[in-house]
């Protein structure tokens, strides 16, 4: 599979790169000043602090030259996956709806977190069960997902909410919400299902020795999706 990881100054692309290696893939790092992502099967916008997250997380990165190419790639149906800072860049760039505020307690938070998979019919989640509770850590200061009432209604109507913060028992309560995100939203997809953003970091839970393997499902889902499409001659 041809995977491209966008490298912005300040981003933490290395963790994503290593995560793909765990499932046997060797992605290509794409410098943010490039202007094309032709020929890739998947573009990943990694976590980190692009441009130091100065001004606002993701606000500067979405003006990098590469982002016009990513936008065109997404519009043509290419798979785009934003993790953490990558999700923030996707909302800043208008590829996904909503915006991020500082965490409700106004502090950075690095912590294990339970999530519930809300749908498994996507390229990114087909290896999970719907309703499955998984543990994937969060690591952000601005992860408080915010969206207008109207926007939220549309997310609901179009079934765009993919991951929610929950308690260990899978309950979507205030207790399970680490950062104040609206309706415990941890990850959403666009209407077409090809652009996916999530705040938690699955690349951090790929091996037992570093704390778990719950993140593998995302990576394996994408590979499975690719395999199915190849089989169908797409």
């Amino acid at each position: 599979m041809k995977i491209g990881i966008i490298r912005f100054p300040g981003s933490g692309e290395g963790d994503c790169l290593e995560a793909w290696r765990v499932v046997g893939e060797e992605p290509v790092l794409i410098w943010h000043q490039e202007t094309s992502v032709e020929g890739f099967d998947l573009i990943v916008l990694p976590g980190g602090f692009s441009y130091g997250d100065y001004l606002r997380a993701g606000a500067l990165a979405c003006f990098s030259p590469i982002m016009s190419a990513v936008l065109r790639f997404a519009q043509r149906g290419g798979l785009v996956w934003g993790i953490g800072n990558g999700f923030q860049i996707l909302t800043e760039g208008g590829l996904l709806p909503g915006a991020f505020l500082c965490n409700a307690q106004l502090r950075f938070l690095c912590s294990p977190q339970y999530l519930r998979v809300e749908r498994n019919d996507l390229a990114f989640t087909n290896q999970y069960r719907t309703g499955q509770v998984i543990q994937i850590p969060i690591n952000h200061g601005e992860g408080n997902y915010s969206i207008s009432d109207d926007g939220y209604r549309q997310l609901e109507e179009n079934n765009q909410i993919v991951l929610r913060y929950v308690t260990p028992e899978g309950e979507m309560s205030a207790n399970g919400n680490p950062n104040g995100s609206r309706a415990n939203i941890a990850g959403i997809v666009n209407r077409e299902g090809n652009v996916f953003g999530m705040m938690p970091h699955p690349e951090r839970v790929m091996e037992e020795i570093i704390g778990g393997v719950d993140g593998q499902g995302m990576f394996l889902s994408i590979l499975k999706h690719r395999e199915r499409r190849t089989q169908h001659g797409a």
């Binding site: 963790d15 995560a19 950075f108 938070l109 690095c110 850590p137 690591n139 790929m206 704390g211």
Partner: peptide, 8 residues
Amino acid sequence: QYDHQAGT
């Protein structure tokens, strides 16, 4: 409050 997992 510290990222203690960067670098995995």
